[in-house]
């Protein structure tokens, strides 16, 4: 048993509609790592998590979670993982404390130990004073915190969280982030998180894989991913469409390798040493009497990477 996730050539085709949701995905998450799967809706994030947590079977490839094969030894895997999926819910007629105790009992805690564990976890997610209330009366944020507590009952080596903060207000989101960081740093829990929010992946994860249309399109630390597409981003808008098209050509000629993207009435390009390049570009455009409306220079965010990668993919198709 270890806290690793090893995935090789994983794929999943749903019989219904013959949809290939996951296509030949491979990656490894080391013990103690905080790993994020970033992608838009329908990218295959949830399907991957469902396979890794033994809820559905893959149609191809292999996955080891905590050192056990998810297909052949699902019960072993289930012992060592904590899971909060979008599909998982709670029985609204039970209280928070009852749910935690039941979960503990199912994981083999005896009565006394289950009580203790429930008390402990209610404290961790700050629900101690709501422990006696039925979960049906909880707010969305409280429910999500209880969800997190439920995943921690068996002191998992690996936590799987499928969009844990989607739809939460900022204060509840921060509370979850704080707890996830603590679990990862203090307990060394491996965390596999999926998210649509770039800032979430950026701020929490050690390493990120970007998944789109069932395929991993980029993997790296947030820093590496940002570096991958150049250091700085130049954005320009123009007074007229004609000017913009002329500018696009001039800039492409000047920049050579770096690509100029024409999107939503803006020209963007990723360049090294952005300030210097910007001055040169403005001078070139000025010489040709092209009227620039606005100019912006910024360091790339994960958003930019995401857009770049997914737009490249679309072009290939």
């Amino acid at each position: 048993m270890n806290g690793k996730i090893e995935v090789e050539h994983l794929s999943k085709t749903f019989k219904k509609g013959n949809v290939q949701a996951v296509k030949d995905v491979s990656f490894t998450v080391e013990e103690g790592e905080f790993f994020a799967f970033l992608g838009p809706n329908g990218a295959g994030k949830s399907t991957t998590v469902q396979i890794l947590t033994t809820l559905i079977n893959a149609t191809g490839g292999k996955a080891l979670v905590a050192g056990h094969d998810v297909i052949r030894e699902p019960d072993q895997v289930r012992r060592y993982i904590g899971v909060a999926l979008q599909e998982t819910g709670v029985d609204p007629d039970l209280t928070g404390r009852e749910l935690l105790e039941l979960q503990a009992n199912i994981f083999g805690f005896d009565k006394g130990a289950a009580k203790k564990r429930a008390e402990e976890l209610l404290g961790i997610v700050q629900l101690t004073k709501d422990g006696e209330r039925r979960v049906g009366n909880y707010s969305g944020g409280m429910r999500r915190r209880l969800d997190l507590a439920l995943t921690l009952v068996n002191e998992p080596k690996i936590l799987f969280l499928d969009e844990p903060t989607t739809g939460l207000d900022p204060s509840n989101r921060m509370a979850i982030w704080k707890e996830l960081r603590r679990l990862n740093e203090e307990n060394g829990t491996t965390i596999f998180l999926t998210t649509q929010y770039l800032e979430e992946a950026d701020s929490l994860a050690h390493r990120i894989s970007i998944i789109n249309a069932g395929e991993i399109v980029a993997t790296g630390t947030p820093k590496e991913l940002k570096a991958q597409i150049g250091n700085d981003l130049i954005t320009m808008t123009f007074k007229s469409k004609e000017d913009m098209l002329n500018a696009e050509q001039l800039m492409s000629e000047h920049l050579g390798d770096s690509e100029v993207i024409n999107q939503n009435g803006k020209l963007t390009c990723y360049v090294e040493d952005g300030a210097k390049q910007l001055l040169t570009l403005v001078r070139i455009l000025d010489e040709e009497n092209i009227e620039v409306e606005s100019v912006n220079l910024s360091s790339p965010t994960l958003d930019d990477i995401f857009l770049k990668i997914t737009s490249e993919q679309k072009e290939e198709e």
């Binding site: 599909e87 998982t88 819910g89 994981f107």
Partner: peptide
């Protein structure tokens, strides 16, 4: 249980 997702949660335990 299936509709509120508790069934899935039970399936994720041993």
């Amino acid at each position: 249980d299936i509709e509120n997702g508790f069934f899935s949660r039970l399936l994720l335990t041993p």
